[in-house]
């Protein structure tokens, strides 16, 4: 059933429209003198906070070798199941195993950072590289080489997620010459 609504009769000022136009112009004018909320991306880059969870990288050690030992702890921790690792033997004297393949499906990844927390070797890290662009799905699956390349590109970055976490983490072993310990504190971390 239709309802008949009577249109209100507009006043003269309203019928002229001009006062409303001027009011709008004044608002625009006021904004010219306020602080800008937008930025000229990509000419201007946003400064991201420390520990930002952007694209992953695979860290390298002092000798420029991959740090990862293919223990798959990150893959276990990953809630999106986006990490695939296959190990192989290495001839290096200080470790047995390195990854032959290491893939992160960036389309599946939810950037939660659990992989970085899980890593016992500080081998995987997250950077402030946020420009994840590709034209095919395959390109968005980052392999070992792509992740190592991201390390080279972000080598100088301060405050990656891994660095932030390491700073907040309790020491792995107690200092030497420690007193005989009491009963382990609940939730206390550490190893042998």
């Amino acid at each position: 059933m239709a309802i008949v609504v009577e249109a209100r009769k507009m006043t003269l000022a309203e019928r002229l429209y001009l006062p409303a136009v001027i009011k709008g112009m004044l608002l625009t004018l006021a904004h010219l003198f306020k602080k800008k909320v937008t930025m000229q991306y990509p000419e201007v880059q946003k400064i991201l906070p420390p520990g930002y969870r952007g694209a992953h990288r695979l860290n390298k050690d002092e000798q420029d070798r991959i740090k990862c030992v293919a223990c798959e702890m990150c893959a276990v921790a990953c809630p999106a199941d986006c990490i695939t690792i296959e190990g192989m033997e290495t001839e290096w004297s200080d470790r047995e195993k390195i990854p032959r393949t290491f893939q992160i499906d960036m389309l599946r990844c939810i950037f939660c950072g659990m992989c970085v927390e899980a890593c016992p070797e500080d081998a995987i890290d997250m950077t402030d590289n946020i420009e994840l662009v590709a034209t095919t799905r395959e390109e968005m699956i980052w392999d070992r080489e792509r992740l190592l390349k991201n390390f080279d590109e972000t080598r100088d970055q301060q405050g990656t997620l891994g660095q932030v976490l390491r700073k907040s983490r309790k020491p792995f072993t107690r200092p030497r010459g420690d007193q005989l310990p009491g009963p382990p504190s609940p939730g206390g971390s550490g190893g042998h």
Partner: peptide, 13 residues
């Protein structure tokens, strides 16, 4: 067994 019965950190220096 280390998880169940160990002391959780090492005193071996």
């Amino acid at each position: 067994h280390s998880f169940d019965h160990g002391r959780g950190h090492s005193r071996f220096v």
